[in-house]
Write a protein that binds this DNA or RNA. Structure first.
Length: 754
RNA sequence: GCCCGGGUGGCGGAAUCGGCAUACGCAGCGGAUUUAAAAUCCGCGGCCCGCGAGGGCAUGUGGGUUCGAGUCCCACCCCGGGCACCA
């Protein structure tokens, strides 16, 4: 074996061999809960089953896997597994394009991706992997939907969607091209439609308050993303009264109340109807609600603006303020009412200008006339508004979790009782792009009312993948044998209490919304009961967001022709090189501009380490076989060679110690790129040691050689989380036994000789 | 427009706390090895002036703080990403 290996670095042979060994020994299986052992759940992002692993996945999982392997090497029990996010529009589009069923498309894509990920050697516990589109899994969504519905955290509302009259179907934004349907190229219109919403607003303030507690183990990007999603605005609020009633208004400019010129109210404000006086304004509001707001015109100079014709007191007295309606408020402060202060706020300045332009009409100063006693304003008090708001979770799609609700002629809307779950999605649907395939399935739609047993029709909207994501982080904690149990049983398992909260999320910086909403729903389930053991309502104790992988300074896309294919790189250089390069090329917090030079550098490094270790072994063996000769020479009374290299060995030992210390710190901080650089530096120093010894005494002495081997054994273990296949292979070549779980981290466990 | 990143040689990028700017690598050039090529290894290398010793200029632009600034402060320019039925 030594001969074959020393012939040269053969990544493919090594990687297939190590991966086969890993499977055989089942090394990445999640250990059963043992409270006396340190343990950690590391959560990789749930990949969408798009069909191909891309460089972003490689980066993300290389970071997470390096961390998982590091923690195992330190003796921790690790849970490292994920579920495929398998529902969603692209599966339907893929199915439309290929004429197959979405379920088949997803299965094919996921299997291919799993093959790619296995080839890269990530240490996932594959036994616990799952598809969110499996019945046994999407019943979680249905259970969660019903649970939140009971708690009043899911509610029915009205929203607008793009609709194609020709195809008789709802269109997603990406299916609308210049106002035309992507499929038939006829004009698209916005229609009003009933939808299901999730009331995250109930827990937004707590998500804000808890943020400070996360600062120790959440990196700056992930914290910033939470602050961004939160959209917290600090200011003051006060009650303003006018002839038509009272309204609480907010502003972030507490020191400029006298400069207020108008009140801006959200069209979704609960009390909106009282602030629209004229028939004309009511019509405009109705138009706005039913889709008059063009998606393209969200800019302040084009956004809808309605003068409601009512007035309120100015905060500090003076001329009454007109009340204007605009969805501009929603995007900045939520469904509230705010003061317009043109001198302080650019948007307000634009609104004021638009107002002045239309003041030629009646809107200007003709109102008023009311007695000034009708106007009053309370004193301002500190207040907070959040941009984060409730969102729609229902979609008119055939490939999603069926919403467990039926409509009965007698009873109206009736939730499906939890013990009757799951509501099964027919998998033999082949969408064509027109109509609503699920709604056309009579065998699905027609059912009986759970309440009165009379005829009823099922809800044909499905849940958005975003809703699935709310629970997607939990099921890997469940041992596979318990997966079929009822959710009540599952949620009572000790496994959940053991592994949760998740110790570390590793995900792309675009995951901020998911994580935010997962934090919300954890708090809801804490209060409802199932997750009561998470007293702070936080699902993730630690979090690392990394930036994107780009190419030529741009996002990778087929259109730009700058896509880097991980398979081709693995084929050329092997998985270890590709993974190491993904870690080495940039620190997680920076976008990784992919370049050949990083991968070439890493490949050369691994080749050199491979060759150098084998050369070192050969030298040691040669010295060992010559040992007898030198002993007889000593016995014959020859003067023993003076030890002139002891100080070099000491220095080498010092370098190793420093290396272990620094790289341990790097790994703990998930600074994989610094860790990679420090491993490379240590290797340079080991080679430097040999060079210096040879400069002094031509060849290595036995002690030098042993010191060298010892240093290489340290190096190989430090390399193991970053380039696991080669490291393990070299560890064995250095005469060590492979332990059951993982190469032990240097300084922490005893080296076990063969 | 708003929010978040970023700007250092021909290229990707180093520079941990404000302390020798350009580590390491790619491409390039020279050499070794080779029948040859590939691969590998060794050496050189910011820009300008100078035969040379040497000198001058350089981290997007303009100011500022400092003994000292790629790094800190202010203003601006440019590039990238995101902005909710894409996940």
């Amino acid at each position: 074996m030594t001969n074959a290996a020393s012939a040269g670095y053969d990544p493919h042979g090594i990687e297939l061999r190590r991966q086969a060994q890993w499977r055989e020994r089942d090394v990445f299986r999640t250990p059963p809960p043992a409270e006396d052992r340190p343990h950690l759940y590391i959560k990789p992002s749930a990949p969408f089953t798009s069909g191909n692993v891309h460089m972003g996945h490689v980066r993300s999982y290389s970071i997470g896997d390096a961390y998982a392997r590091f923690r195992r090497a330190r003796g921790d029990d690790v849970l490292f597994a994920f579920g495929f996010d398998a529902f969603g529009l692209p599966a339907e589009l893929g199915a439309i394009a290929s004429g197959e069923r979405p379920s088949e498309w997803v299965k094919r894509c996921a299997e291919h991706m799993r093959g790619q990920l296995e080839r890269l050697g990530f240490s996932f516990d594959w036994e616990r992997a799952f598809y969110s589109s499996d019945v046994v899994m999407y019943r979680w969504s249905q259970w969660l939907f019903l649970t939140l519905l009971e708690a009043g955290l899911v509610y029915r509302g009205v929203g607008t969607v793009d609709w194609c009259d020709t195809c008789q179907t709802t269109l997603a934004t990406i299916q609308v091209e210049d106002g035309l349907c992507w499929r038939c190229h006829n004009p698209v219109r916005l229609i009003q439609r009933a939808e299901w919403n999730v009331r995250i607003s109930a827990y937004v303030p707590e998500n804000d308050e808890r943020l400070a507690e996360l600062e120790d183990n959440w990196d700056e990007i992930s914290l910033a993303s939470q602050r961004f999603v939160l959209g917290r605005v600090d200011g003051v609020e006060m009650e303003l009264r006018g002839p038509d009633g009272e309204l609480t208004v907010f502003t972030q400019h507490a020191d400029a109340l006298e400069l207020a010129r108008f009140v801006l109210i959200s069209p979704r404000h609960p009390a909106i109807d009282g602030w629209v006086a004229s028939e004309d304004a009511r019509e405009q509001l109705e138009e706005l609600r039913s889709g008059g707001l063009e998606r393209a015109s969200r800019d302040v100079d084009a956004i809808a603006l309605i003068d409601g014709g009512r007035t309120l007191a100015a905060p500090l007295g003076g001329a009454p303020l007109p009340v204007l309606v605009s969805p501009l408020v929603d995007g900045r402060f939520g469904t509230t009412a705010v003061l317009g202060i043109p001198e302080r706020d650019h948007s307000d300045e634009v609104i004021a200008a638009r107002l002045a332009a239309s003041a030629g009409g009646a809107a200007g100063g003709a109102r008023g006339g009311a007695a000034s006693s009708e106007y009053a304003a309370s004193a301002p008090r500190p207040a907070v508004r959040y941009k984060a708001d409730d969102f729609s979770i229902s979609r008119q799609r055939a490939w999603g979790t069926p919403i467990p609700v039926v409509y009965c002629e007698a009873c109206g809307m009736v939730p499906v009782p939890k013990e009757q779950l799951p509501v099964v999605l027919p998998t033999d649907i082949t969408p064509t792009g027109s109509g609503n395939p699920l709604a056309e399935r009579e065998d699905f739609v027609n059912t009986t009312c759970p309440s009165c047993d009379g005829p009823a029709r099922r809800e044909t909207d499905t849940l958005d993948g975003h809703f699935d994501a709310l629970w997607l982080w939990i099921p890997v904690c469940v041992p596979v044998h318990a997966r079929e149990q009822t959710l009540e049983q599952i949620l009572a398992l000790a496994d959940l209490r053991h592994w949760l909260p998740c110790g570390r999320v590793v995900a792309g910086s675009d995951s901020g919304n998911f994580v935010f909403d997962q934090r919300i729903v954890t708090k809801a389930l804490r209060d409802i009961g199932p997750l009561a053991f998470l007293s702070d309502g936080e699902p993730f104790a630690g979090c690392l967001f990394h930036e994107m992988v780009i190419s030529d300074g741009r996002t990778m896309s087929k259109h730009l022709g700058n896509v880097v294919d991980p398979d081709a790189l693995v084929e050329r250089f092997g998985a270890d090189t590709v993974r190491l390069a993904a870690l080495y090329a940039a620190r997680p917090q920076r976008s990784l501009n992919w370049s050949e030079s990083a991968v070439l550098r890493c490949h050369r490094f691994l080749t050199q380490v491979h060759d150098y270790v084998h050369a070192g072994i050969a030298t040691t063996q040669a010295l060992a076989s010559a040992d007898g000769a030198s002993e007889s020479a000593e016995a014959s009374g020859e003067e023993p060679e003076r030890d002139t290299t002891e100080h070099l060995r000491k220095r080498l030992a010092g370098w190793c110690e420093t290396g272990v210390q620094k790289i341990t710190e790097d790994m703990e901080e998930l600074e994989m790129h610094t860790a990679a650089r420090n491993v490379m530096r240590l290797f340079d120093r080991i080679r430097d040691f040999e060079k210096r010894v040879k400069a002094r005494r031509q060849t290595l002495g036995r002690e030098d050689s042993e010191a060298l081997i010892e240093a290489l054994a340290v190096l190989v273990r430090l390399l193991a989380p970053l380039a696991p296949h080669l490291a393990e292979e070299l560890w064995i070549a250095l005469g060590n036994r492979v332990l059951d779980r993982q190469l032990p981290w240097p300084g922490l466990s005893l080296v076990a000789p063969a």
